[in-house]
């Protein structure tokens, strides 16, 4: 899916936990996430802190969309 969206001309960031799978499906902008059943959250955290975590991840994804890349790039810290 991510590759076809990119092919259509839309910049796309893939947020996922299993980065090797994202690399093999051909995503270019990749942001690693928390865990498979809750990529953008952590049920162990109190609700407010969980949202702070989610916001940080989404901001990282937006940053990735604003960053020029010339191939596959994993946006770590």
């Amino acid at each position: 899916m991510v590759k076809e969206i990119e092919r259509a001309g839309l910049p796309v960031v893939h947020m996922c936990t299993v980065v090797p799978i994202s690399l093999t499906v051909g995503a270019n902008r990749i942001v690693p996430t928390v865990a498979i059943p809750h990529p953008l959250g952590d049920p162990e955290l109190p609700e407010a802190e969980e949202k702070v975590l989610r916001r940080a991840l989404v901001e990282k994804a937006l940053k990735a969309l604003e960053t020029p890349v010339d191939g596959q790039h994993v946006f770590e810290e």
Binding site: M1, L10, M15, T33
Partner: peptide
């Protein structure tokens, strides 16, 4: 559909 809808960029999440 996204292009027709005027979307600029996409966040795709996977589990």
């Amino acid at each position: 559909e996204l292009k027709e809808g005027g979307v600029t960029a996409v966040i795709l999440t996977s589990t």
